[in-house]
Design a binder for these strands. Sequence first.
DNA 1: CCATACATGTAAAGGGTTACATGATTAA
DNA 2: TTAATCATGTAACCCTTTACATGTATGG
Lengths: 199, 199
Amino acid sequence: MPVPRTSPFAVLGMLSLGTLSGYEIRRELAANVGAFWGESYGQIYPALRELSRKGFARRHAARRPGGPERHVYEITSKGREALRRWLADPPHPTPPRNELLLKLFFSDRDAVDQPAAWVRGLLAEETEKLRQIRRMKEQLPRGPHHHRSLRFWMMTLEYVERQSEATVAWCQRTISTLDLMQEAQARRRTAAQRRSPLE
Amino acid sequence: MPVPRTSPFAVLGMLSLGTLSGYEIRRELAANVGAFWGESYGQIYPALRELSRKGFARRHAARRPGGPERHVYEITSKGREALRRWLADPPHPTPPRNELLLKLFFSDRDAVDQPAAWVRGLLAEETEKLRQIRRMKEQLPRGPHHHRSLRFWMMTLEYVERQSEATVAWCQRTISTLDLMQEAQARRRTAAQRRSPLE
DNA sequence: CCATACATGTAAAGGGTTACATGATTAA
DNA sequence: TTAATCATGTAACCCTTTACATGTATGG
């Protein structure tokens, strides 16, 4: 069965929005789709070579005066066609992998402290993420942007916003449940101590 | 830097809830944590060998009369200790990978049909998933269960329920936006046709 | 002087899925 | 007879991250 090979198309997609260097692709991917698609240098540079080899992008030297070595990649019409074909076939779902939930599932009611700390950590991160998403949603319509359709961009932002809201709500609810469990655990401990006092 | 190595612990976690065969571990993982943690045979059987080698589980022949070859694995006290240690250290977040959103982000406003079809598909899947989660949430408290804490189980169910609800709501909203875009696209086409009629 | 941003890349190592091979039993 | 369920396992092949190597320019 043919493998996904998604990373080169993530890169090609970015090139369809503008001529960029590998470094810039990384930065733009992180800023625009980072909330639902992660890509590292270890993927991007090999992908750029592959795209050049296949004639989907052309490489140009683009060193800026007084700057470090630099190359930008420009999408070709063949590349646009390949991107169009890739966009046309259905997306492959990624199997879910949430280690926090897995640990929570196997947790022991006599060790509630750690899960509680993680959920608090997640709440902090997710609250911050939500703030950023909302800021982006506000600022996006104003100012110039090179995206070919603001509508699609907004849709992806709305998706991560809703997921993020759901996560925040769950964290809050879960923290109070864990706090109750922690109190119950403390009561069990004192009760056990009364039965077999150590001092 | 040490790599996650989560899969063996997912297996060990299941063994901490009961003595199971590889096949049963697969089935139970899919049924209980499948919504947030996927595991394939290609991970489970090697993991069981590794757990045996490390003394975290003991393998017993357990062929049932008139049944196929079968082995069950029993967690050892060393295994319980290892699980406890694993549970104690913080979970590693998995980088997000949502190909549907990535394609949506790079979509062209002149080809709205396909994204619309995918989102409709996602809505159907997610609605069904939500139904199942809610059924589980109802049935879980009744009837015997071997889990060591219903509370933790419920937390994970609530997480996937909230995420699922958010996804369903997003799908509905997004479908209507895409429908509007499709109409606009049709209008653009007829307008273009009026300017340069083919017949 | 030091940290950070810009900038390009490679290598190792491991994670993970899919597909395949094999075979018994049972129910339609 | 055929499909489905139970059951174990391997191998190929990718995907992916992390760490490393290297160097310039800028701002504090």
